[in-house]
Nucleic acid binder design. Structure first.
Lengths: 333, 333
DNA sequence: CCGCTTTGCGCAATCGTTTGCACAAGCAGG
DNA sequence: CCTGCTTGTGCAAACGATTGCGCAAAGCGG
């Protein structure tokens, strides 16, 4: 701890000049004589002077920290998004403070409050699936700008970056129907997520286009717990006319569902197939992976959201909340 | 932004009292009259007063932020560790600022410098595999305490939390040899990681105990890139006497290696089997998973490291750097 | 009624840095 | 020689909250 509390004051005293002279000398202020400037910079370097960031944060009322609240770090989808966020923020000198909501409203709300207490300059949020109440966002947005990504809240007050899920679902349906499938089930997300509705729309649009009747028993909303996934896939398999393909909310759902199918003696990609949203890397290691998957480019979503937030933080007067839509891509295996 | 810059000064002016009275009233200081106290607290609540955290950080020279530097967020192993860290830190009111080193020395070094500039109170590090130079740690530790976890630097100056890899490797060997295997290869990590040496020791100890000769051609050090993994597994399979089991540095290595084995017509768990370190959740979805895996409890490692760091930050005068060893557990599938 | 303690509150310094302004010295032009 | 400009430096306020100290009023015992 050789220089734990080295301040300008000490440098000033050492050199017999004032603190303001030291400050200006270090900033190469033109009004400081070159002799003094050199002297100050030399000593500062020798003593490894580093400005006290907390004092500067205080003075500028800015911390160069951004909060990120997302459901689970352990879901690769979100850690990829974080990587995109980190990269964009880093290039502008910002860091990210990360918190997990675990899909829980209380935790999400507490996280946002805590971030504001910690003095972040802005917040990126991918909403918890159990968030039906939005007051915590409204309270927070009085203090710092908020930008949503992936699991967004669509509202003119907020910026949001998300994938075109309706189109992605529709594309997937066209592909499946084109391959001759008609018994297609949808294992969708919870109603609290915007994307659930959009996915349903794409699914129905696809069926309608090819005059395939929509069967309510093929459409399941899940709450993203493993238990519920097991319950719903069993319901589907118990139908008189079980589906031949399942369009799944994401890979994790599909994996658990596939497990049940196997336990019930079905062979994946012969008796039943899956199409998923999210394209996780480890699916490529499966012997029988989903036949297709929607790549949603989470890193891109994160990066774009971080870009909007940067704009909102750096030019708050001119910033207008807006939405960015990233086009997903159907990947066929 | 109704109350973006509401300070004690405004409350004081509004009520015709001094700022110090407001400050004390909000802290329930006994010397403030109950009438004044009520008045101040009521108004503060009405106006949604929140203390300016940057001012408090500055005054206390403390930010309640902790930096975490790790190789990849997208490796589930590390995101689980982060979850353990988050939980421990959260309970004491700290948040974590996360940065990825991508196993690169330059990035790691820059991350640590950036964290210090951002004013974190302490740093948790899981070292990059390409870090051979330690000067960035030495520089940083003059400013804030550093605690290593999982990929640690063993040195009396630093605290470290890590798994007993030697024993874990030895246990795995005993299990394999007990099952009748003798042709056991080791796909180890890079030399820069402490655990590589320890894993090798456990491997050799196991062979020696059962008088199985150590074959240098069965021992490979990897640099953790996919290309290198492919190269090394091919070298192993090309041997006159290819191994029947591979002890792999972690699941990601094993997955890539298994892929190559399959491409070469081998059937996993019949012609060749794998034992891995790290026990990632998705391996349970594989049709032919590794026959055993070493659970290293990354959340526990992270939590313990965070605990040490908390101690180092909160009682710096009495804190002595030390090491904590977490016992891994062999899980047999 | 005096001297003491208690109660209630404000003043001012402090943390480290930045910055508008003032001031003095030097110098050039008229 | 005076005016006005440039150059180099320091003073002091500011950011928001905390806190030691001081002061005045009130209360109380003798």
């Amino acid at each position: 701890m050789q220089n734990a509390n080295l301040t300008m004051k000490k440098i000033a005293k050492e050199l017999g000049v004032s603190v303001s002279t030291v400050s200006r000398a270090l900033q190469n202020h033109p009004r400081i004589g070159s002799l003094t400037r050199e002297k100050v910079q030399k000593l500062a370097k020798e003593l490894h002077y580093q400005p006290n960031s907390r004092a500067i944060n205080f003075k500028n009322n800015k911390s160069f920290n951004v909060g990120v609240v997302l459901p689970y770090l352990t879901e690769q989808y979100f850690s990829i998004a974080l990587t995109g966020i980190e990269q964009t923020l880093m290039s502008k000198g910002y860091s990210m403070v990360v918190m997990q909501s675990m899909n829980d409203y209380e935790r999400e709300s507490a996280a946002i409050e805590s971030l504001i207490k910690h003095g972040v300059d802005g917040i990126l949020v991918s909403m918890a699936s159990e968030t039906y109440n939005k007051t915590h966002f409204n309270n927070a947005t009085h203090k710092v700008p908020i930008v949503f990504f992936d699991r967004v809240l669509k509202h003119p007050r907020y910026s949001a970056v998300y994938g075109n899920i309706t189109k992605a679902a529709f594309d997937a349906m066209e592909y499946l129907i084109g391959k001759g499938f008609t018994e297609i089930a949808l294992m969708n997300g919870p109603n609290s997520l915007q994307s659930t509705e959009e996915r349903l729309k794409g699914y129905i649009d696809g069926l309608k286009k090819y005059n395939i009747p929509v069967s309510a028993s093929y459409i399941k909303n899940l709450n993203l717990t493993k238990e519920d996934t097991i319950l719903k896939i069993n319901e589907l398999l118990d139908l008189e006319n079980p589906p031949k393909v399942v369009l799944a909310f994401h890979d994790y759902i599909a994996l658990d569902a596939m497990q049940i199918c196997k336990e019930r003696g079905l062979q994946i990609n012969r008796d039943i197939s899956f199409v998923t949203f999210s394209n996780l890397s480890f699916c490529s290691y499966l012997d029988n992976p989903p036949i297709a998957t929607v790549e949603q480019f989470p890193a891109e979503l994160g990066a774009q959201a971080a870009g909007l937030l940067l704009e909102a933080m750096e030019t708050p007067d001119t910033y207008q909340p807006r939405e960015i839509v990233v086009e997903p891509k159907l990947i066929i295996r």
